[in-house]
Design a binder for these strands. Structure first.
Length: 415
RNA sequence: GUGGAUGUAGCUCAGCUGGCAGAGCGCCAGGUUGUGGCCCUGGGUGUCGCGGGUUCGAAUCCCGUCAUCCACCCCA
């Protein structure tokens, strides 16, 4: 039943096998890739002072204004569940005295009070990377390449990577003014939503899905025209390096990011199998000021729900861990002996299953088959008397009687 | 926050204009006195999401409510 007070809260999900195995595989794959890049794990609190996010992401952003789970804690502090990973990580690194050159990743749940939808939960999970250091096209290119490497490691094909720039911080006002100025003659052609956006988030007009707005946007001069030569050169350098690194990224002048802390390089990865929420990852270079300190770096976050959605389309079954052997007992005495044997096998690292309910041999065999165990070991009074077992290969049906000690050794050896 | 759709068995769903609550899959048992997959047989009381209303009678019609899904918005 999907309703009632025992169901999870809206936008929150219970996760169980085989999906949990798929999650584990994805997380392990990421750890493997990170270790190759010298990126170390950092774990920060899920609950932070609201000001940490407000300051880092921008007071006026939608995430801060209407999407955070915020409340007053018992000490009267205004706190929020983290809506993204960067702010808390930067806060922690600042306090730990981390310097430029620090490379970290984080993994875990994030919370946003939005209406649930395909690929969007209220509790969702991200794995993200932060590479600290001052603006550097090489660092940015390495970071995008690292993200691309992750998709490769996960076997997620068809990812489209788009790169652009917000320009250095000093360029932001002139970009905004330039955009509004060139937009003026086309004001009437914009949708109602974009009319409103002109005064709130003008850059978002570039990203509008309405056909009329898109044709207006296509005739607009590139935003790089309102940036300094330095900013334009930076983007060109990043694109050149990405090409050399073999990362299939295309520059897209319509690309925008929603958080205020970005400057220079920004990017996004999308996947066609995802529906309306098709961004699997997003990132960029940032400059964050908290509590008098300034942190510069480049990073990205990947939405794990979306990766898994794009990855499997329901085929999580193949990631389920299967037992190496299933112990079948004929009679109560063998059942107890099997319990003892199973403990020995498991302590030796052999994944082992058995049925303790005292069901028929046939039922036990069916359970073994369903578990997709590679081997089945059958023991009854005859085998117990001889300290033996019948080891059966479930794929071939071949069955051999052998001493228990030998079976144990063979199972531990992995065959 | 806005809009659209949907809630019936463990799962996927059928149930036409109100008249005994169903199918497939799964699961359990047997056919095989100690052996899985294929086949055959048997096994179904499920708050028809919840609460009201209309009616002789409601899974079906009406109202409310909760939940889920999808889209907008925003973002991963």
């Amino acid at each position: 039943m999907s309703s009632g007070e025992w169901a999870p809260l809206p936008g929150m999900a219970d996760l169980f096998s085989p999906e949990s195995e798929l999650w584990h595989a994805v997380e392990e794959g990421a750890r493997e890739v990170f270790s190759c890049y010298g990126v170390r794990e950092i774990r920060t609190p899920i609950l932070e002072r609201t000001s940490v996010f407000a300051r880092a992401l921008g007071e006026g952003t939608d995430v801060v204004q209407k999407e955070m789970f915020s409340f007053e804690d018992r000490g009267g502090r205004l706190v929020s569940l983290r809506p993204e990973g960067t702010a808390g990580v930067i806060r922690a690194l600042l306090r730990l005295g981390a310097a430029a050159g620090e490379r970290v990743f984080y993994m875990g749940p994030m919370f946003r009070a939005e209406r649930p939808q395909a690929g969007r939960r209220r509790q969702f999970h991200q794995v993200g990377v932060e590479l600290l250091g001052p603006p550097s096209p090489m660092a940015d290119a390495e970071c995008v390449a690292l993200m691309a490497h992750l998709f490769e490691r996960w076997g997620l094909g068809g990812v489209k990577i788009r790169v652009f720039t917000r320009g250095r911080s000093a360029d932001h006002p002139s970009v905004r003014e330039g955009l509004l100025r060139t937009l003026e003659p086309h004001e009437a052609e914009l949708c109602a939503e974009c009319q409103r956006r002109r005064s709130t988030h003008p850059l978002r007009i570039l990203d509008c899905k309405v056909a009329g707005c898109r044709t207006v946007v296509e005739r607009l001069p590139p935003m790089t025209g309102f940036m300094s030569a330095e900013s334009r050169g930076y983007l060109e350098e990043v694109s050149r390096l990405l090409k050399r690194l073999g990362v299939p990224a295309e520059t897209d002048a319509r690309l925008i990011r929603g958080l205020d802390y970005y400057e220079h390089t920004i990017w996004e990865a999308t996947h066609p199998a995802l529906g309306a929420q098709d961004a699997v990852a997003g990132g960029g270079r940032y400059r964050i000021e908290i509590d008098g300190g300034v942190v510069e770096g480049v990073g990205f976050a990947v939405g794990l729900e979306r990766v898994i959605l794009a990855l499997s389309g329901g085929d999580a079954e193949r990631f389920a861990r299967r037992p190496t052997v299933w112990l079948v007992a004929v009679g109560d005495r063998a059942r107890e002996e099997n319990l003892v044997w199973a403990q020995e096998l498991r302590r030796g690292g052999v994944a082992c299953g058995l049925d303790l309910a005292g069901r028929s041999v046939k039922a036990q065999m069916r359970a073994a088959d369903r578990s997709r165990a590679v081997w089945v070991a059958v023991r009854g009074d005859d085998e117990l008397a001889a300290a033996a077992c019948r080891l059966k290969n479930m794929a071939t049906g071949e069955e051999t009687v052998m001493p228990v000690a030998e079976a144990t050794a063979r199972l531990r050896a992995g065959a």
